[in-house]
Write a protein that binds this DNA or RNA. Structure first.
Lengths: 346, 346
DNA sequence: GTGAAAGCGCTAACAT
DNA sequence: ATGTTAGCGCTTTCAC
């Protein structure tokens, strides 16, 4: 053997396949993309040669020539909050049969970071963008407006959209939870959440919640915030802390199910009578709640459906048949579970 | 106003910026990439024009011309198993300062799907590939070998690698857990896992576990498998089921922490004496364990470190200073927690 | 320090 | 049914 480096030094091109099977580059291209009429024998020869050589097409060149890119940019705040992987699941599923591929970027709940990620991703000229929330930097909004592609803002509908929106009203979600709590007769209500000034959806839920309480003349009696660490453990600690400070609380509203689950575990261990002495509720409808000792009251954020429908809009297959900007508000259903009592005090 | 459509109909090109500021395309390109010497005044004019127009460079053209792509392909089995988002976190963090960007694909634990995803992603000519596990289709292996870029297989070291590997030995992890269980005096051991023939790491842990037990003359007394649904709830149900079938079991080994957590909740509610009557262990070292009533015994899979180091290898910044293929086996530490008793029966 | 020409690997559009 | 030509928007290379 005279040459140990006889393997592919240079990545193969169409030309290599073309030469290997004696068919023009153009025809090879047609076969590989399954476009135009190619005779069966030619087609077979091309396919055989491409496979034998291990040819992988260069989408960069293809995209530049065709001005088409089968990529959909998805920008979400986080991957460790299970909510977003679930949205992604919906997006992937809906994109499956369309030939479009999601490409994910993460903003870590920071608008500046989101802008940077968007800039980076838009420079690959994707066919569409799906991003969480309605709050973006001015520059990001301009970029998206000028991109000339479908833009779908997801999860939240409380605000002005760039193009299409699909989500729920977190303000309403908070308000409805407050209504249910008041109706059940709870009066000394605590709120526990994460310390994330840029989690606009959590903020809106809190605002709606306060509105709802206010309508019944109730005010939040105590609050507790956390950052970092295991949400389940934090939920426990915060609950212990808030109850130590204010033992008179008869309801705890958590900004997400994970800390709510921690709170539930704490209350049960502390021997508190849930939901009679104290009621609890979270938000999201996370799967994990199903394995808990009691079903925590919650409100489903419709994550999967939001992902699916956003993808359909980008793919131009929205069931609505609309082509222009769509605006869809989903209505999350309150699930009382076992942690809100079923009748008021009266 | 005579023209409502005066906005950018066509995406801006270098030429547009060039014309807007009276500087050649070439110089504009230099400024935007921060390469080569450009006088300060020229640079400012270019930057100003680019910003004013809202120019976003076309990376497709750039990549084609320069033959360089700052993308790193990452293929993982799933996003809903929290393990993988954590690996991703490590990868992103390590790639942060390198100018490289991770692009994620999901295989759903199916080798065929992995092959398809790889083909799709390799056609964008990334600078490197990180993928989970050592088991791939023949075609996938060939593609990776021929790609001429760094390939890092992660999570598992039990098998033959294509290029670099970084992970733990799941076989060893299983064996060490078995040793600890036997040493603690448990003898009637049950195994509970997911029904995923293609989860090779879980399979290897089980094999190593059986080996370890066998060395002490112990055999697995009962098994229980699940698929789909909430892992926490499934863990509960499976535990109840396996104990109903075989009440004599004194230890339950779960293939992951989530079902283990469910099992723990079940045992505590059932009033079983953990860890004396029955011991429990999971696998992964998930954060969620911190909030549970007891600390479940587990073994950390070093997810974050694996991600970080894989990224360093791809970026050519491995602390080892090596340039060729690396092979790194991390050693997970057994954490007994509160669910394995501390001394044997003797 | 700046510009002009060539070409990256593919596909659209037009032959044949 | 197959081939030819031009060019996608950039960067490389070389000239000035």
């Amino acid at each position: 053997m005279t040459d140990d480096f006889s393997g592919p030094r240079r990545r193969l091109t169409l030309r290599d396949v073309s030469e290997a099977c004696g068919v023009s580059e153009m025809t090879v291209s047609r076969v590989l993309r399954d476009r135009g009429d190619v005779s069966a024998p030619t087609r077979d020869r091309v396919l055989e040669a491409a496979k034998r050589l291990g040819y992988v097409p260069n989408k960069i060149a293809g995209a530049l020539a065709s001005q088409r890119v089968n990529l959909v940019t998805v920008v979400i705040p986080s991957l460790s909050n299970m909510v977003f992987p679930e949205v992604l699941g919906g997006i992937s599923a809906a994109l499956e049969e369309t030939g479009l591929q999601p490409v994910v970027g993460v903003s870590h709940y920071a608008a500046e970071r989101e802008e940077a990620v968007l800039y980076e991703m838009l420079s690959w000229r994707p066919s569409g963008v799906i991003l969480a929330g309605l709050e973006h930097t001015e520059a990001a909004r301009r970029m998206l407006e000028n991109a000339g592609i479908p833009v779908v803002e997801i999860m939240d509908v409380d605000g002005a959209a760039i193009d299409s929106v699909i989500g729920i009203s977190h303000r309403r979600a908070g308000r409805e939870m407050a209504d249910a709590i008041v109706a059940a007769g709870y009066r000394r209500v605590g709120f526990l959440g994460s310390m994330m000034p840029d989690d606009h959806r959590a903020r809106k839920r809190l605002e709606g919640f306060e509105e709802g309480l206010a309508a019944a003349g109730v005010e939040i009696a105590a609050t507790e915030f956390y950052s970092g660490g295991s949400a389940l453990a934090k939920g426990r600690q915060m609950t212990q802390a808030i109850l130590a400070r204010d033992p008179g609380l008869d309801f705890l509203y958590y900004s997400n199910d994970m800390i709510g689950a921690g709170g539930l575990l704490h209350c049960l261990e502390a021997g508190l009578d849930v939901p009679n002495t104290i009621g609890l509720a979270g938000f999201n409808g996370l799967e994990i709640l199903e394995g808990l000792p009691r079903r925590l009251a919650t409100m489903d954020a419709c994550r999967r459906e939001i992902g699916e429908r956003a993808a359909q809009i980008v793919a131009g297959r929205s069931p609505s048949g609309l082509v222009g900007a769509e605006r869809v508000e989903l209505s999350p259903v309150l699930q009382l579970g076992d942690t809100i009592r079923r009748h008021g005090r009266d």
